[in-house]
Amino acid sequence: MIPVLEARALEKSYILPRASWLERRARIEAVKDVSLAVAAGETLGIVGESGSGKSTVARLLMALEKPDSGAVLWQGEDVTALSPRQLRARRHGIQMVFQDPYGSLDPRMRILDTVAEPLDVAEPDLASAERRARVASMLERVGLNADVLTRYPHQFSGGQRQRIAIARALVTRPRILVADEPASALDVSIQAQILNLLSDLKAEFGLAMVFISHDLGIVRYLSDRMMVMQHGVVVEEGETERVFTAPAHPYTRALIAAMPKLVT
């Protein structure tokens, strides 16, 4: 099967602001030689601690940043070579859900316009009644009533905001969803609602999903395959259950051992 999302030998480094005029600018290599492929209906979990490069991988996959070298392929097409205009025209096929539901919605925008944003770019000629209907039905799909359309983000709880963010991500019916810690900022009782919703939607839309998290329990619950990253490098990759039951790399073993467990 052709992977819906593919990355080949991604490299990305950042130049740190120099501490003083006399020093040379330090570079940090955020991502080194990362390759991955995700098929339709499949979830790839990426696990790592802060500074492991997992969020950089997310931004590279989304083409929000350009890699120093390597390629990102959306449905077989290399997007690193596209012009900004060509890239914008393809963005409706890949969407993202962010960690902080308070920072990912524009506080000055009504929910209707927030959710419709990807639609406005993908189908600018959509009639306003149709636009509203599409947004309302997607909001309903994530568990919110149509009466939220004219309200503003501050009127919602974290869990509700994350539902709104998911509706925005899916309103153009993308093939690929990148979720960067989508449940980490939520209370436990709400977290399960969002995780269930994501796994339902993944099945319903046949999404290829990249799920990034520091929480091993959640990644184990949601992913078919997983990657473990440390210092910008993939140290282990494989079927999720295989990684958990027979971790090959010492760092994976350390992570699993450090994970706080309920009654064993």
Binding site: V188, Q191, A192, G217, R220, Y221, L222, T240, F244, L262
Partner: peptide, 11 residues
């Protein structure tokens, strides 16, 4: 609270 937490082999 406990039922809402993914733990172990629950995929």
């Amino acid at each position: 609270l406990l039922a809402a937490l993914p733990h172990g082999r629950t995929r």
